[in-house]
């Protein structure tokens, strides 16, 4: 295989890089699922104060995390700067989730409005991450 011209090589490089780039899009789906799971968890904890909401919520969360881990291991390529983006998303999500649970458990028990608002806020980091990935893999 040889290239007929420099332009042919450039076109091929573009085609291969784009195909490879698109293969990293799975991570956007991963983050959207993570955001939806976050919102469901917050709603369950908020709607059912006490152990029921927490137990069911954490059960669903563990299943989701296990499914996402399997999904991740099945992928064959990652986006550029995957490690940095994932670390930032999970770190910001973690801080927001701790605030949601601690403040909600102390001051907003049974007040669904807090849990909906805080759930949406906590879901934002993975959603923003998903937008970044979609744009990078277009």
């Amino acid at each position: 295989m040889t290239y007929q011209s420099p332009q042919a090589a450039l076109d091929d490089a573009d085609r291969l890089a784009n195909a490879a780039r698109r293969s990293g899009r799975w991570y956007a789906n991963y983050l959207v699922a993570y955001a939806i799971g976050t919102l469901i968890l917050a709603l369950l904890v908020g709607a059912f104060p006490g152990s029921f909401g927490a137990v069911v919520g954490i059960g669903i969360w563990l299943v989701l995390v296990a499914a996402l881990t399997i999904y991740q291991y099945r992928q064959r390529a990652t986006i550029k700067r995957f490690g940095a983006l994932h670390s930032i998303v999970i770190a910001v999500w973690g801080v927001l989730w701790i605030i949601t649970v601690v403040v909600g458990s102390l001051y907003f028990v049974g007040q669904l409005g807090w849990w909906i608002g805080a759930g949406i806020a906590t879901a934002l980091p993975p959603l923003v991450g998903a937008v970044v990935v979609y744009r990078q893999t277009r």
């Binding site: 291969l16 784009n18 195909a19 490879a20 990293g24 990652t78 986006i79």
Partner: peptide, 17 residues
Amino acid sequence: PVRFSIMATLSGVGEAE
């Protein structure tokens, strides 16, 4: 060409199997 194609493919990702 093959090495060029490998480099092109890897240029689009962080890591690939």
